[in-house]
Design a protein around this nucleic acid. Structure first.
Lengths: 141, 141
DNA sequence: CTGGATCCGACCAGATACTG
DNA sequence: CAGTATCTGGTCGGATCCAG
């Protein structure tokens, strides 16, 4: 299969290197770097924390107050995962009582741009999505 | 549902409008449109399917072959969710045997851009992330 | 104040079998 | 070919108690 059917997409034009990578045959979701990264970002709290830390560094309790509906367990765990991936920096100040500050690493900061693009899209179209959901629900009935 | 309609502040800066929205107090993750949308996109297969359909429409079995490690159940379910959100169009051809074609709606196509931004980031930095993970693992030991 | 550890329910997701 | 239905295990995530 050597056919170049790129022109079929007409105006899409944004699939770019994804289609190329996918067509390269060596995909199969196992060695897929996208999934590897998106899996973490796709969880319930990661993106929210990243955007929050993108504004300014936060302390633990500060984050907990900013996100009322996160449990302490999930906050700890998500922060540790992000730290593990090199997106978040954790700094402990040996004060009494102890305080810990979380901030984005340069790698984490570089994610803000692309992530904002997606968030902007979500904000812009979530009305249409909710509408589509209601239409679908009423059709199903 | 008390007062939908989030202004979303058009689109200008990157992190700016998120911080603005967050600071506006009208956030709290309950009425957060971001979470509403990202929740669906963040699941295991949505983004993959969207990018795939962004290339060209696919039939059901075609998608299943393209993604070997998706179960038939998850494929059906994810497609239905995307259709419900108005991102994917489902067209049935009453042939024998029956065939169904899935394609992106204009709304779904508009997502390709922002999503590609994130995917490009993932592809570009996933090496750094894997490296960070190994460092973290060795430090933990 | 910042977490670790544990228990436990809820939901996600795969395997399998069956239908039109 | 394109699904639906059911059973089941694994993981996510909240609540609570405890420690430094």
């Amino acid at each position: 299969m050597a056919g170049e059917k790129a022109e079929a997409g007409t105006e899409s034009g944004a699939d770019t290197n994804f289609q190329k990578m996918f067509a390269s045959g060596d995909f199969n979701a196992a060695n897929c770097p996208i999934r590897d990264v998106l899996d973490q970002l796709g969880d319930k709290w990661s993106t929210l924390l990243i955007m929050l830390l993108g504004g300014k560094p936060h302390r633990f309790g500060e984050l907990r107050r900013q996100i009322p509906d996160i449990s302490q367990r999930m906050l700890t765990q998500t922060l540790r995962d992000l730290q593990r991936d090199g997106l978040v920096h954790r700094e402990v100040f040996p004060t009494v009582p102890p305080s810990v500050e979380y901030s984005l690493t340069p790698l984490g900061a570089s994610l803000i741009g692309p992530l904002s693009g997606l968030i902007d899209w979500a904000a812009a179209h979530h009305g249409a999505i909710r509408e589509a959901r209601e239409v679908y629900a009423s059709e199903a009935a």
